[in-house]
Design a protein around this nucleic acid. Structure first.
Lengths: 143, 143
DNA sequence: TATTGTTATACTCTATAACTATA
DNA sequence: TATAGTTATAGAGTATAACAATA
């Protein structure tokens, strides 16, 4: 056991921690991790399969099943794309919007609790640096 | 599009970023994410199924298959536990140790690159706060 | 009785390759 | 020809429930 954790180890631990919270909150909303990620991404606007595939980092063929199951559960719908008859837009249903809202609120609360113990100044510095680091990362939550 | 990302959104983005790196480096070492996590956890010492299950956050029954596949690939072995004839210890093989080393070195390099753009002082403050936040989190990398 | 680990089963997630329809 | 999306197939990962062996 080292006395001081390396920066890399700390980053991995934080990731594990947040990922576990993400999965737990998802389970509480009856959403798998993959479903929660998809709803978060669709929260911005209806999205085509190819773009959604790139944002989530899964193959288009994998996304087909993911959307199938979510559609079957009433969380999303496929809409025809008026500009391109090959394409579809995946959009949140009202039920999907509700699920996303619950998931988002609950996760935000839990994540903010991770930081509540810190002194205000240290917390502000931390989140400031965090923003710099992730400035170019994909938008997968609420942005 | 907000001008300022919330702390929660930033945390989720960072997690997504690190998780993607983790998966990419794993793929480069011919390891799935679950396998890489298991090897990292076993890097400390041989571990029983129940304890490993708790550390990784998966059911014991799920772990059985995970260990089966890793054992079949020559990464780990099940060893009898001298103190308890019900139990087994899962231990890294030489091949598993090599794979873990490669994975660990490569991931550490990539993670440190996330921080290299920051001024030294800001980086030190950030990693200091990070250590405080994850102090109680499970050890899943190199500790 | 409680705990350790496995088996049986079912489902989600994922990728690769081949395919259809439209641009 | 290239792109959007699906289908077919195979495998990994996961959970729940029931089980055997040992503590």
């Amino acid at each position: 056991m080292e006395e001081t954790l390396s920066a890399a180890s700390s980053l991995v631990r934080l990731t594990h921690l947040v990922h576990t919270l993400y999965a737990d909150v998802g389970r509480g909303c009856d959403l798998t991790t993959a479903q929660a990620q998809m709803l978060c991404s669709l929260g911005n606007r209806p999205t085509g399969m190819a773009e959604l595939s790139a944002t989530l980092g899964v193959e288009r063929s994998s996304l087909t099943g993911l959307v199938d199951r979510a559609e079957h559960r009433g969380l999303v719908v496929r809409q025809p794309d008026a500009q391109d008859r090959r394409a579809v837009k995946v959009a949140l249903t009202d039920e999907g919007t509700d699920a996303l809202q619950r998931f988002h609120d609950e996760l935000t609360k839990k994540l903010e609790q991770l930081l509540t113990e810190l002194p205000a100044k240290e917390r502000d510095q931390f989140t400031g640096t965090l923003r710099r680091i992730v400035a170019d990362a994909p938008a997968v939550f609420a942005d």
